[in-house]
Amino acid sequence: MQTPLIQRVLPVTILILGALALVVPGRYQWWATSLGSTVTVLVAPVSGPVRAVATWLGPNRAGSSDEANRVFEDELERIKSELLRTQQENDRLRQTIRDLQSGLALQDNAPVRQLEAPVIGTGSDPGTGMLTVRAGTREGVNTDGVALAPGLQLLGRVVAVAERTSTVRSITAKSSEAITAMIMINSEVADGLRCTLTPVGDGTLRGPVSDRRDPGTNSPIEPVAGQLVRLDDPLWPRSSRMLKLGVVESVEPSPNQPLRRIVTVRPTVLELDRLSDVILWTPLEPGNDKAGGAK
């Protein structure tokens, strides 16, 4: 026989949960984040292997031909993005030196730590594009980091870090903010057409391209399908600039401004949310890399 007090526990619990669900703003439920991280770690022994097996069996196998090729391609892409970033940084520094004409301490390219980490979970609504990765502050991950897919394809940004896990928001998630990018008209130099890309929700990014004209002929420089698109957003960590966002899939005239173009960009790795492992790229000196950091 249950006492009246025990009988009241269930309705009181429902009331409390109803109040938390309907009335209490998300920012006041900060305590739940660490609980969520603990739950994710506890179920990781099941979710990690299950995800790895499902990804291995599924059609979206990462890697092109074999492991050695993949390593080589990754290294090539890393050097390429580093070169472009260095060129861009040199231009910026030259401009800064010209502007300041003083001995101000200028930042070099911040060194980064690379860490391969397994994905142990996706949010219950995959549309939010949140991936939980088994690496946290213990491994030196912080919110200045970014996550990369094989081939150094930018996967997303580290938006929250717990002791053992971190949360990555995919660039293609509809909840992600717009990204400033550069369509590379020349693969050797950090020069191209700037565009602002917004996630569509179907795994692509779409947005208008800035108007730019050829100085010789004064004709507009048009983006072309197949051109590589790289991140060039001042709000992202500096170490992530010039990382690969994808390739131009289609170009169409803007409905409001017929002379402007709208591009659709698709990441080079299909279905970023289904990866079983990611590479976390964390700057070694977080303070130097701060751009549009987490609030």
Partner: peptide
Amino acid sequence: DRLSPVVVVG
């Protein structure tokens, strides 16, 4: 208005 995600219980 927040970069880091929130967890809402309920």
